[in-house]
Write a protein that binds this DNA or RNA. Structure first.
Length: 849
RNA sequence: GCCCGCGUGGUGAAAUGGUAGACACAGGGGACUUAAAAUCCCCAGACCGGAAGGUCGUGCCGGUUCAAGUCCGGCCGCGGGCACCA
């Protein structure tokens, strides 16, 4: 009797797939296509269990769809630019390029033994010049299409490392590396005009019905559509050219509660005053200090500076309101100026209280209780408040209806107009970093900013750079910046900013359709393979990556790099949960926590010392907590199929799954059991003709049905539970029947998306023809899905009291007779007369007393 | 503060409005074995009972329904997203 030896069969079948070219994706007009994609990894150097789970899910879908007859594209690549490579270079020397490519080689080596059905011929890294050169070509096309521009923008600036920091890299107002207080600095940066698409990106979310609602909602909130009134205050005492100040408000219904106006420190009027008044300059400079992070803003005190300028209330020009420069007003949203209504806005209330400004309420109380509410601070959404002062004494609703009514009223009086605003801002892509895609632009003294000639692409990163001093190595490179202007031929200088790495990942899915082409995409390939039919990845990318990709696909369509039918690149999205593990901790003499790897712990104690460990509930695997299991050692110990089987079982794919040693053992045990059953069958040659096992055959077809549905609906855990159940039945079933013989081979087919090596082995040893990977998916026979007899539970007033077994199509009156004749029913009724019998055919019977 | 999701045995979890707890882990019992490992079989929501059977049970309170884990309303708890966005 042969044993289950994954270390022997897994390499064998991987070699067989390789040799046959089983997973090479081919354009095939005769077959429908299916494009499965998992979010590509950052080449950190080691794969982790999260990767295993992500790619296994994608692989299940890819293999299943292939068996269904689709021409499948299932590629893999590397999101290879980014700061970790530069940090590694700074910390331990070496070059980001070497670090990155050796990490890729290492991770590919770790990934291949998983037996994923990937078309490796399409592999690329975003740091390949062949890739980023095409990205540069698209950048130039996007410039021509008006989707790219430069502007001065406020950024987080680290004065020690001399670079822009992303908000995530600012911790408590300090640079994460330098620990220096981050400044808000205005720099000229490159931007993509994603805001041109705000409305469309929002509206099109409705069509993404195969995306999680959660993700669509997060994107909708991020785009942040609001409806409001924009109008101009007339000023008095303002400098020339500032006789009007435009403001935007979503609460025009509170306009009569205006008590002041406030402008951003970055507002043109503030900038003007700054030049003529040292006190203003000092205040504005003060505002610019401190980060732009949420934390920094959260704790910041509201501060204002009275400019001396006054504005007239649009409805009552006898009322003058002071104009403040206020630190909480953002230049980036609306018009960078607001009217303050302290009675109905918490922020304005705080400000008005601090500066002793009046707090007029716009609501007229209906009764004493209303009066108490409106006296000082009316809640904005109070349902109690029904009248608004000034709007013709009309009874006005609260909330959206009030806003709509107020906009209409204001427009009728010639005060402003209703406008729609979005929170989504243009995408700042400039990074003062080396390890990224160079922005292919040239600064010429006479021609200005000029795109590089496409013939000169790729604009390659220079290799001879150093990281021993802070700042951008491209800036200080002796020769790299020097070039000639493509327009006039004069000496010019290259742009030294590189692109945000999110640009790289915004179109890689399209590149996979023609990964080695000399243009970004190839029309026929893009037309055939796009869109991605199923995209799988972590929910942490719900907003940025997925929103940028949706924008980029539109930009590519506009510049002719994608068909216009591919502006929504991902037809279906699935966001999978994390792999977690318990944390094992002891304490050192000083009481500080000391963490231990799972393999150092057994039975709640440290294997080496016998010391008892504290078990902290399961959490995301992290190196610092040492609650990690290494996929490589799992594959070595148990085999890839066991790792794959286990990460799919137990928990629904969208939820976190806890890795446990006992769970992995159980998975391995089960696969061994399946192999034993198959081996027993394979040894039998004398299946008596005509022998059958109708029960087993029915169970098999129900299993086909359930597993198929399970895979289709991402219910992998439920599909696996059905496979367990069927295996239990199979193990107990009578030996030597034709049904059992068939069942083993179909079981192998049903398991093949999850445990492909085991499935191939069983297939070949039970006489299967060809590779199971290219064998059509089994079909359930509908006739076998319904039993001849059904067991109906009998409820009395909704409580289960008995059950009867009847032929599946027995007439309802006959069922009723049997129910009333049932002993247990009679006992439970105890002489009571049923008022009604509800028979749900094939389901249940309820006797109502 | 605003928006969203989720609460089921000791644990991970199943369950088109129709027998709650499938499947698995951990646990208990048994077979095989000189013994162990491996394997195989059985038990297992709680409470009462020898059993048959009964009562309770899907966070809490109420509602709709012949029937609610599932639908509706209100609470409580946990988790996630956004957040000086005017």
């Amino acid at each position: 009797m042969s044993q289950y030896k994954p270390s022997e069969i897994e390499p064998k079948w991987q070699a067989a797939w390789d040799k046959a070219g089983t997973f090479l994706a081919k354009r095939d007009a005769a077959r429908p296509k299916y494009y499965v994609l998992e979010m590509f990894p950052y080449p950190s150097g080691r794969i982790h269990m999260g990767h295993v789970r992500n790619y296994t899910m994608g692989d299940v879908v890819a293999r299943y769809k292939a068996a269904q007859g689709f021409s499948v594209l299932h590629p893999m690549g590397w999101d290879a630019f980014g700061m970790p490579a530069e940090n590694a270079a700074m910390e331990r020397g070496g070059h980001p390029k070497e670090w990155t490519y050796s990490n890729i080689a290492e991770m590919r080596k770790q990934m291949k033994p998983l037996g994923l059905s990937i078309d490796w011929s399409r592999e690329f890294a975003t740091c390949d010049p062949e890739y980023y050169g095409q990205q540069q070509a698209m950048f130039i096309d996007m410039m021509a299409a008006g989707l790219v521009y430069r502007k001065a923008a406020v950024v987080n600036w680290d004065p020690v490392d001399m670079t822009v920091l992303a908000n995530e890299q600012v911790i408590d107002g300090k640079g994460w590396r330098s620990n220096a207080a981050v400044e808000r600095r205005e720099l000229t940066q490159w931007f993509f005009k994603i805001s041109d698409y705000s409305g469309e990106l929002l509206a099109a979310l409705d069509g993404l019905t195969n995306w999680p609602d959660k993700v669509r909602l997060m994107q909708a909130n991020w785009i942040g559509k609001s409806r409001g009134l924009q109008f101009a205050f007339t000023t008095t005492g303002a400098p020339d050219g500032f006789d009007r100040i435009e403001v935007y408000t979503t609460r025009p219904d509170t306009l009569l509660g205006a008590s002041f106006a406030a402008i951003s420190p970055d507002h043109p009027l503030a900038k003007h005053l700054e030049r003529h008044d040292t006190k203003v300059a000092a205040f504005v400079a003060e505002c610019r200090r401190g980060g732009t992070t949420a934390e920094a803003l959260e704790t910041a005190e509201k501060r204002g500076f009275d400019t001396g300028v006054r504005v007239l209330h649009p409805f009552d020009t006898s009322v003058e309101l002071p104009v403040y420069i206020a630190n909480f007003v953002l230049m980036e949203y609306g018009t960078g100026a607001i009217f303050g209504c302290p009675a109905h806005d918490a922020r304005d209330f705080e400000f008005a209280t601090k500066y002793g400004l009046p707090i007029p309420s716009v609501f007229v109380a209906l009764d004493a209780e209303d009066a108490a509410l409106t006296e000082v601070f009316s809640p904005m959404k109070s349902e109690r408040v029904r009248y608004i002062r000034g709007f013709a004494g009309a009874e006005v609703q609260t909330g959206d209806e009030a806003v709509t009514a107020a906009i209409a009223f204001c427009e009728s009086k010639g005060v402003g107009r209703g406008v729609t605003n979005y929170r989504l801002r243009d995408w700042g892509i400039s990074r003062q970093r080396y390890w990224g895609c160079p922005i292919p632009v040239i600064h010429c003294a006479s021609c200005g900013v000029v795109p590089e000639d496409k013939a000169n692409l790729p604009v390659k990163l220079p290799d001879d750079v150093t990281f021993d001093i802070p700042g951008n190595p491209l800036d200080r490179h002796p020769t790299w910046r020097q070039c000639t202007c493509p327009k006039c031929g004069a000496d010019a200088r290259r742009e030294t900013d590189t692109m945000d790495t999110f640009v790289d990942s915004s179109w890689y899915y399209a590149r996979f359709t023609a990964p080695h082409a000399s243009t970004p995409t190839v029309a026929e390939d893009a037309a055939y393979w796009m869109n991605v039919d199923q995209y799988i990845g972590g929910v942490e990318h719900a907003i940025l990556h997925l929103l940028y990709s949706r924008f980029f696909a539109r930009a590519m369509a506009k510049t002719g790099h994608l068909p216009v039918t591919a502006i929504e690149p991902f037809n279906a999205l699935f966001t999978q949960g994390m792999v977690t593990h318990e944390i094992y901790m002891t304490r050192d003499d000083a009481g500080r926590p000391v963490y231990h790897f799972p393999e150092e712990v057994g039975n709640g104690t440290l294997t080496a010392t016998g010391e008892t460990v504290e078990v902290i509930p399961s959490a995301k695997m992290s190196k610092s907590k040492k609650n990690v299991v290494d996929p490589v050692s799992i594959v070595t110990t148990y085999g890839a199929d066991t790792a794959r089987w286990f990460v799919l079982s137990d928990s629904p794919p969208e939820r976190d799954v806890e890795w446990t040693a006992s769970g992995a053992e159980a998975a391995a045990r089960h696969l061994g059991r399946v192999m034993r059953i198959a081996t027993d069958i394979a040894g039998l040659t004398d299946n008596g003709p005509g022998q059958d096992d109708a029960g087993l055959r029915r169970a098999l077809h129900k299993t086909i049905q359930d597993v198929t549905m399970g895979i289709e609906s991402f219910g992998f855990n439920a599909a696996i539970a059905r496979l367990y159940g069927f295996t239990n039945l199979l193990a107990r079933s009578e030996a030597g029947t034709a049904a059992k013989q068939d069942a083993v081979r179909v079981l192998a087919q049903l398991m093949s998306p999850m445990t492909p090596h085991l499935a191939e082995e069983i297939w070949s040893m039970t006489g299967g023809v060809g590779l199971i990977a290219t064998t059509p998916w089994p079909k359930a026979d509908p006739a076998l899905l319904i039993d001849d007899n059904v067991t109906l539970p009998i409820q009395i007033n909704g409580k289960r009291r008995s059950e009867i077994t009847v032929p599946k199509d027995m007439a309802i009156p006959d069922v009723e007779k049997l129910v009333l004749a049932d002993d247990a029913v009679a006992r439970a009724l105890d002489g009571a007369v049923p008022r009604k019998l509800i028979v749900v055919p094939g389901r249940i019977v309820n006797v109502v007393v």
